[in-house]
Design a protein around this nucleic acid. Structure first.
Length: 429
DNA sequence: TCTGGGGTCCTAGGACCC
DNA sequence: TCTGGGGTCCTAGGACCC
């Protein structure tokens, strides 16, 4: 029995969500705009038909929009998140938790391998589509393949060819048909192939999905990257990416925003940064994490090439990981003062919290640095091994490092390199 | 005049330390 | 005093994704 991975996604997600609550928008050309109403981030089918691309600045299409009666809405992410929860929860009725990977706000991978025995997968997923539409009013498409990359491609076909009626299943297609459709699909539709790669591939004569699928993954991996090699294998049906049902905890939290107007002085920047820190710390605490590094950046408007440009960021490392708002705010303000330069028109600023760790796993080592329980245990074992081999008088970080070669020595240059006594060792709680 | 925000992964060079 | 190698950290930037 072959593996069967489905990708279910909401068509024109943000526009569809808005239509659920305002049915007058149905059948009309609608766009949803980003913050500051800057760019189009979602387009209805009617708008796509006018040739308006994803992410175009609103001011560039304003005239066209007027001409065709396009309705522009500011985004409402709280609403979209709520609709997303309901969508994912309905999918949860069809599979077990470890057969579902929530990939983004509007996309979900499902492992349907075992369901092939009991159901026809096309009708099974058609049932999902209908239920989602009936219960929460969202239109969805389904692509089914043996790998995630194939499922993504099938999802694209499900939208592109009306005869599929929203579900495209590669397992039901014969090889010549697949090949013919791949020949007609441009290579940039493949998951992981962006603008730059498309250009580089075109220079080698690879322009369609069929071309890429026929290429040698090992040769291409050397020429491009390991990611490219995997993408090709996945297109060929060789699994490189497993389903990841458990959301990995994120590694950084970013809070940033463009300003509606240009800023020249430090005070409004300070207020903005203060706001971003609060925003990021709220997320940090919701995750139950603490951070060890805070970065702040400010920049001018890079679209205004005629203006003098400035971009500067600075990071501050914390001795002890924290989620303390006041402390992080003070550090961010200090960072801002370091990088601020008068004489520029600032357009954007941001704060990044990184080196995140679960708050409950963090303790301090004898230098006052935070270590996870796991690391501390390894340190203690190493020291015990040193004592056993060389005796107590030889306990120093250098010897410890001989026992654990990959032990991080980053504290060695700021703190005493030598332990003075056995009693200095971290306590085991 | 007006051009989003939040992520991941990878690479490279310079400063600095042992 | 001169030399080299190995390592970390920081900054910057590029590529991709939604």
């Amino acid at each position: 029995m072959s593996r069967a991975i489905a990708l279910v996604d909401v068509n024109n997600c943000y526009v569809s969500c808005e239509r659920v609550f305002n049915p007058k928008l149905i059948g009309k050309p609608v766009v949803v705009l980003s913050n500051n109403d800057g760019c189009a981030v979602a387009r209805s089918a009617e708008v796509k038909a006018l040739g308006i691309k994803m992410g175009v600045p609103w001011f560039q299409i304003k005239d066209l929009a007027k001409q065709h009666g396009i309705i522009a809405l500011s985004s409402n992410y709280t609403l979209y998140a709520e609709m997303s929860n309901r969508f994912m929860s309905i999918l949860g009725d069809y599979v077990t938790p470890d057969e579902r990977e929530i990939y983004s706000i509007d996309e979900c991978f499902l492992d349907l391998t075992t369901y092939q025995r009991l159901f026809d997968l096309t009708s099974y997923t058609q049932d999902m589509r209908q239920r989602i539409n009936k219960w929460i009013g969202l239109p969805v498409s389904v692509g089914i393949g043996t790998t995630k990359t194939q499922a993504k491609l099938m999802n694209h076909w499900a939208k592109k060819f009306p005869q599929f009626n929203g579900v495209c299943n590669i397992l039901e297609m014969d090889a010549p048909t697949i090949h013919r459709r791949m020949q007609k699909t441009p290579v940039n539709e493949v998951w992981g192939i962006g603008r730059q790669q498309t250009k580089a591939l075109a220079a080698m004569g690879i322009v369609t999905v069929a071309d890429l699928t026929a290429s040698d993954p090992h040769v291409m991996q050397k020429r491009f990257s390991v990611v490219m090699g995997r993408t090709i294998q996945e297109l060929q049906g060789i699994v490189c990416y497993e389903l990841e049902p458990l959301q990995p905890t994120r590694k950084q939290i970013v809070s940033s925003r463009s300003f509606g107007e240009l800023i020249t002085t430090i005070e409004p920047l300070r207020q903005a940064i203060c706001h971003y820190v609060r925003n990021a710390v709220t997320k940090l605490r919701a995750d139950g994490s603490v951070c060890s590094l805070i970065s702040v950046y400010i920049r001018t408007n890079h679209f205004r090439e005629q203006d003098p440009q400035y971009y500067k960021s600075v990071s501050i490392r914390l001795h002890t990981p924290t989620d303390d708002l006041l402390l992080l705010n003070a550090l961010a303000t200090q960072a801002l003062q370091e990088i601020f330069k008068a004489g520029f028109n600032y357009k954007k600023a941001g704060v990044m919290l990184s080196d995140l760790k679960p708050a409950n796993q963090v303790t301090q080592d004898l230098f006052g640095n935070a270590v996870t329980d796991e690391k501390r245990e390894r340190l203690i074992h190493a020291i015990e091994a040193v004592v056993e081999r060389f005796g107590k008088s030889h306990i120093n970080l250098g010897t410890v490092k001989k026992v654990i070669p990959d032990w991080e020595m980053k504290t060695a240059n700021r703190s005493p390199n030598y332990l003075t006594s056995w009693e200095d060792l971290p306590l085991v709680t």
